[in-house]
Design a protein around this nucleic acid. Sequence first.
DNA 1: ACCAGATGAGACATCAATGTCTCATTCGAT
DNA 2: ATCGAATGAGACATTGATGTCTCATCTGGT
Lengths: 192, 192
Amino acid sequence: MSHLVYGRLMSVDRTQVLRAAAALLSRRATATMDEVARAAGIGRATLHRQFAGRDALVRALEELGIQELEAAHDRARTDEGPADEAVRRLVAEVEPVAPLLSFLVTENQLFEGDQQNEGWARLDARVSDLFRRGQEEGTFRIDLTPAWLTEALYGLIGSGAWAVQDGRVAAKDFQYMIAELLLGGARRSVEK
Amino acid sequence: MSHLVYGRLMSVDRTQVLRAAAALLSRRATATMDEVARAAGIGRATLHRQFAGRDALVRALEELGIQELEAAHDRARTDEGPADEAVRRLVAEVEPVAPLLSFLVTENQLFEGDQQNEGWARLDARVSDLFRRGQEEGTFRIDLTPAWLTEALYGLIGSGAWAVQDGRVAAKDFQYMIAELLLGGARRSVEK
DNA sequence: ACCAGATGAGACATCAATGTCTCATTCGAT
DNA sequence: ATCGAATGAGACATTGATGTCTCATCTGGT
């Protein structure tokens, strides 16, 4: 019993399947279960054995996304140093998860916002806290609510991910474009 | 033949149906044809008589959205006056169309972006031109490309529409939040 | 009042995706 | 090499939405 993983016999790598699914669904949110299976290099039956159904798959993707976002937050140490620099670090760390994030956000929009998942609430709170801290430190303007800044960050990350995927923005500019617009806006400022 | 409209006998108001569809689909993008029909107060058969199918309905919504956005642009006179003020006017004029716009944007993302609709291309060009003009006038920073600023504007409008619909942002703050963030960013600036 | 045309309701066939199941094959541990 | 477990491929039933059709009813113009 050397290959027991989580009490089950090992077989297909669950995480690997999830990553393949994320990669595909981020591009085409309407991809079928069969397509997901092929993208993951496994049979449809096996996919169904691992995830009871499409809903279960999406929920698993949600968990994965939340995990990775939490990890990104941790790595970015958003509670340390100047708030604007923390935002930059956060954007940088979130970049790899951006396509999955935008998929999950739109997915959540589709299915009526019945139950605000606890994980999302916690993430929202972390982002929101960051902006609030920036306001208290005098770095961020106080006429834009932390809730809106949080929404805007998600929105810009989604737009950025999609613009990159579509070739309208170079991948290397992703972090810069988002962070700069979010922090400094489009208007030319006197400083700098 | 007093009630001939566009060569067809009048009956249900096509535009009114489209508006009802827009209102519903903007909230629940997966709403069924039957739901759309009920929302419009007509029978499903009649809905099918007017729009060959779901695709046709969405395409009609697309045309409607494009029309209204063009009209918003015209009213905002985005080629007059300082670019930043033009952006403000544009955001204000676009606000009523925001939910429909965000629906169409995500819808377009779902179906593979094979052929860029001519209408969207023209709208993109108008927005893009506005930002370019601002850069040439020295109002906007030049390190953010017009293409990205255009994406960002759409993204923020979508986020704003959704945040309002979800009650996380007050409807009355919609224009201000978007325009201020887009123009000035989150960082507190020295001026003002 | 009459009539052509449009509507609404529902029956119906179709279609695509989903979920379940079977079975031969393959893989890994021993 | 052998055995048990997992896989892949495909058959199959189910489901939900779609699109078509019919027919009774209604409406607006004459």
